[in-house]
Each structure stands twice: as C-alpha cells, then as structure tokens.
Design a protein around this nucleic acid. Structure first.
Lengths: 203, 203, 203, 203
DNA sequence: AATGAATGAGTCTTCATTCAT
DNA sequence: CATGAATGAAGACTCATTCAT
C-alpha cells in the first residue's frame, strides 16, 4: 500500500461530495432547511445515509457548505462585474446589478441566502452573517477608495443598507407572479440606481 | 344571570390571551419559531397545554398573531412619526428613524420580524410578506404624494429597497456587541440619510 | 317549598334530556362514537358542557341511553308488525321486514346499532349485546311457540343467524350508492324470505 | 458487494415485519383499534417507535395489513373446504362450517374482523367492506353456478345474509362463557344448516 | 342550577444520527 | 469503505371531565 488513496478515488470522492452538495442545495432552496430531510437528500442523490455522514458531520454542515459555496459564487460574480468597470460608480452599479441578476437567475440559491438561512441555529446564523459581512466588506472598501465620490460618513452602515436593499428588492421580485412583475434587468437597474443615489448623494 | 358574559370573565380571557401572546412572542424572539416549543410556552406562561389551544388553534396561529400585533405596533409608531412632520422629507426621515429605533428597543420583536419569520411554512411566509407589504405601501404613497421631491421611477421598488435597507442595517446593529457598536440613534440617523438620499437624489 | 320540583321544571328537564339524547344520537350516527365529541354535542344542542354532565354521568352514558332508546323503538316496531299477523310465519316475515325497513329509513340509527357500537369499551359492547339479545329472545320465543312450523334444533342459534343476516343485508344496502341499489322494500322482502326459508325448511 | 441485498437481510426484514404484524393483530384483537396504542405494540414486539414506522406508514396501515392478511387466510380456508366437496350443497356447507371454525379457533382474529374493524375511519371501513365483499362474491358465484339447487332470486342479498348470519352466530358463541356454550362444531353445523336451508328452500 | 374555562394525560408521528454487518 | 435498519427523544395536538364562579 504505497499511498493512502488512489487519485481515482480522490477524484471520486470530490465528485461525490459535489453531488451531495448540489442535491442538498437544491432541496434546501426548494423546501427550506427543516423540510429538507437527510433521508430526502439521500433519496435524491443516491447513496446511503451512512455515506452522507462520511462527507458531512451533520445536516448543519451541508447547509454551511452550501451557504459558503454560494457566497463564493456571489463574490466571484460581483468581482467580475467590478473588474469590468474602471469608473468606481459604474463598478458599483455593475456589482449591484450582477448580484441582483445572479440571484434572480438562481432563485433556489436566492432563497437559501435570503430566507432559508434565517432563524436557524446560532451557528448557522453566524455563517450567514459572515457571508453577508464579506460582501459588505467589499462595498466598504469601494466606498472608502473614493471618498470624494462616495461621501458616506459611515461606510459600514451604507454597505449594510445596500445589501439589505438588494436582497429585499430581489426577494419581492421573486415572490411576485411571473406575469405581473417587471423584467429582472429593469428591477436590477432601478435597485442599483437607488443605492447609487444613496451613496453618491450629497447630504 | 342577567347578562351573557360577565365583564370580569371577558376581561380575564383578554388578559389571558395577552399573556399567552406576550410569552410566545418573547420565546419566538429569543429562540426562533422551531426552538420555541408549545410546552415551553406553557411552562413560562403558566396554565396548561389545553388552555393554550383554547386561545390559538395551533402553534402557527400564535406566531401569526404575534407577527400581526407587531406589524400594527410598527405601523402606529411610524404613522405617529410621520404625523409629527409636515415636510414630506422630514416625515419620511422621521418614519425611518422611528422604525429603526422601535426595533432597536425591542430586539426580540425585531428578530421575529426580520429573521425568525423567514423560511417557515408558506402560510407564515405569506403573513410576513403581507406585513412588509403594508409598510412598503405607505412608503409608496408618500413617494407618490410628492413626485417633485421624490423622483422615483418605480416607487414600489424604492419602497422595498428602503424596507430592506432599514432591516439589514438594524439587524447588523443588533448583532454587534454592545461595546463595539454606535449608538442606535446615530445608526438610525445614518440609515435614514441613506434612504433619503436614495429617494430624493436626481439621477 | 311543598314539593321538590315544580312540574314545569320536571317537564323542562325531560325535554332537555331528550334534546341532548337526540343530538347525541344524530352525531353518533353521523360521525361515530369517537369522532362525535362532547363539545360537539354541546355546540349542536346548545347549553354547556357542565349542563351535559348534569344529565349524563359521562360520554358512555349518553351512548348507552341512545342505544337503549333505539332498542326500544326497534322492539316496538317489530312487536307491532307481529301483532298485525296471526299466522306465525307471516308474523315472523313481517317482523323481519319491519326491522329492515325501520333501519333503512333511519340510517343514522342503523349505523349506531350495527357499526358504531362495535369495538368500543367492554361496557358499551355489553349494552349492545344485551339489546341484540333482547331481540334474539323474541325470535326464540316465536320459534318455540310453534315447533311444527319451525323445526329448529337450536332456536337460539337460529335467532342469532337471523339477526345477523338482517343487519348485514341492511348495512350492505345502506352502503350501496342510492342509484345502484334495489328498493328497500324489495331487499327487505328478499331478506325476510331468506330467513323464513331457513327457519321453516325441513332438513 | 456482489448483490444488492443479502438474503439474510431480506429475510430478517420479512421476519421483523411479520412480528410487528402479529403483535399488532393480537393487540387489536384483544383491546380494539383505539385502545391498542403504538407504544403498546412497540413494547410488546420489542424494537422502537421509529422502527415500527419503517414497516408501516402509520397505525391505520398496520390495521389494514392485519385485516387483509386475515381476509386471505379466511379465503384460503374456505376455498380448501369447497375444493374438498364435489357436491355444491356439501361444498357450501363445508365452506360455512370452515369459516365458523376458523374464527372460533382464532378468536382475536374474529374480533378484528367482526367488531374491531367497524366504526373506524372511512378508509378502514372501506377495507373491511372490501374484504367482506370478496367473500360474498364467492358465495354469489356458487349460488349462480347451480340455479336448480339454489333458487335464490337475488344471490347478492342471499350472500350477505349468509355472511351476516355466520358472523353473528359466531360472535355470540365467542361471547358466551366457555362453560355455558355448545361445542363450536355443533354451532358451526347448525349455522351451516340454517343457511343451507335458506338458500335451497323452495319459497 | 348553569356555565365554560381550565386541565393534563396520553396519542400519533418525525427525523437526525449511529453502528453492526 | 458502504450500507440502511434501528433508535428514541421530542413535538404538536385532542378531548373527557371538573369546579370555581
């Protein structure tokens, strides 16, 4: 036994884990944390209960993993949007719009981020807060980077307002019947405008 | 038996119901919807399981009642703030600040409104949304009442952004350790400014 | 106070008790012993829980009273049928038919007698058996009264068979959709024939 | 892992299920559907509540399973009795006697079939009716197969009468104290005679 | 006599997690 | 490594009955 695990096995494990995670994410998004049971996840992903517990210590763990994976996707999306715009205001607008649109196109993930991760255990609550904090942090940096354009007295507060505004705007849009709502792009734009006006406005 | 129900009894029932509601509200705020069990509520409020079910059809029912009572308190608070200010901008600022401060002073109620009422059953979700919708509606009215001052293209979107911004700002404040955070009044003011700038800003 | 209770009060009490009994009978027939709750009976009959317990020691008690009242109605019906026929065979036929028809026309009462009074507490079971025994007893008497016509070796067994046959035949009829079933009179007649043939047949 | 489920495991599950079913059947027969609680069944069969619910969706389910297993045993018993007799009348007599004797020897099962399955939920009621209908159907076939011998105008009615007669006769016998009652074989014979006379008798 | 609020034991059921195979 | 049967604590809810008013 010259090595602990064959590459093949290693890759398999990764693929398996990814499958667990995707299935769990989907179910959490569709039914919520409590309603998505472990047996349910097992039934959908294949495999066995025991196997599930080899990849995650417990149910909370998968949820945390799902939440963090989600956080990274969002970060990546927003960073890219920012990178494509030299002007700080355009960059911020693009970041907000991309956040909105990413969630609008991934409603299950949006649900996890916005509603299903609330009111759970303290630990989960904390993970959710830390994901949000990461995003807020980026906004704070941007605001601080150009005080002339963004005259916010307390960038941390502004950043939170911005995140809250986007989430609530997006969630309302998601809850509205498809036939009655405006196009996502339109609402994304208006939401971005709202926050741009807020952070650039002279007071 | 000169009358159907003695005032005494009637009053007692009301008092009893109020006690149930307050106890339940407190526990929901402290531990969340799922973690606050009926036996727990019974133990804290005194009385018996059966008695609890005489006042509420089921657990969801108390939660709905708590949520709606809360909604009305918030409405009243904000209406009063608005009534005390003739100028629309001041009125809006006052309303936002009063919302923030009301929740900051009633953290358990804030938790219920912001986090604990998310991700529950569809019915509960819907009640939460309808309470929020009521507040958003007021904001929309104000925005519409003076288009010169509030040039929002889509007041409904703006209203949602505002509600979301306040909630997120407030919730972050609540989660921050007391020693590290700014005074509530300060954050309330800054949050109000954020949103005032957003709705009055020319774009 | 020359007398314990005024006639007026006495009459009232009787009327009240009768109302309780009728309401309870109806509900037992419609929903079964367990599903018909005391609060339900109170709600339908008017009055209060406490009042209910002034007329009956407990829920079992009303059921017993209902069952016995029913037993007497059935006895009366059958006795009358018998009395109208001099010939023993005709008398028996008439008795069976009248039993069938009485139950067919009072389906709720039939349910109580045939199905809802089964599988309950030992005491209730025993009451049911004693009501049935009373009917069987009459049949036994008739069979014994004319051994030449009714050559049954064991009249007690024959009587039970007869009762069982009528109940099952009737209950099947009741459960059959109205559009698909034969007229009650026809089935009553056939059922009577079955039993007459059974008790008169030479073997 | 050369095969999906080892015969050993498979066999174990079957044995376990059988044990649950037998224990439940016994308790239902002894105490009735309502009085036989799930915890009781668990205590008697060994195992845990959760395990019970792995084999049956709910309490109703075990009862249905018990009722249907019983129905099949009865069917098998009667079919065998019929098969052993070429002559239609003898076959019918044998079938009735075997039904009576099977139940007389399995009093708990008899209770389930005759009394404990009445007056329960609509679903349970329906299962009971369908089991009875199956038996009645067989009788109808036999009656129809030889109209010269069995001149019944409505075989369906006759079949129901027969089933009812046997059940009631049997149940009365079961309820009678052992010291006071006739031998089961005797009552079975007399009951069979009753019904044979009924279906062969010229009217 | 009448009321009806209060009681609380007891029911069914769920599901995260473990561990023998 | 994988399996999936077993666990059992815990939850929501019901309803016959009592008793202070």
């Amino acid at each position: 036994m010259p090595y602990r695990s064959t590459p093949k096995t290693e890759a398999r494990k990764d693929a398996r884990r990814k499958l667990w995670l995707e299935t769990a994410t989907r179910l959490f998004g569709e039914r919520g944390y409590h309603a998505a049971t472990v047996p349910m996840i097992v039934a959908e992903a294949g495999g066995s209960t025991g196997s599930f517990y080899m990849y995650f210590r417990n149910k909370e763990d998968v949820f945390v993993a799902a939440l963090e994976a989600l956080g990274e996707q969002i970060t990546a999306t927003m960073d890219q949007a920012r990178a494509e715009n030299a002007d700080p205001v355009s960059a911020m607008r693009a970041a907000v719009e991309s956040l909105f649109l990413f969630l609008a196109r991934n409603p299950r993930e949006a649900r996890i981020m916005i509603v299903e991760s609330s009111g759970l255990s303290p630990r989960l609550e904390q993970v959710r807060r830390s994901v949000l904090a990461r995003h807020a942090e980026r906004v704070v940096e941007t605001l601080r980077s150009d005080p002339a354009t963004f005259p916010a007295a307390y960038p941390e507060v502004a950043a939170r307002c911005m995140v809250g505004a986007v989430f609530e705007s997006l969630y309302t849009w998601l809850e509205t019947a498809e036939r009655e709502r405006l196009p996502a792009e339109e609402v994304a734009r208006v939401t971005a405008e709202y926050n741009i006006a807020a952070v650039t406005g002279r007071r």
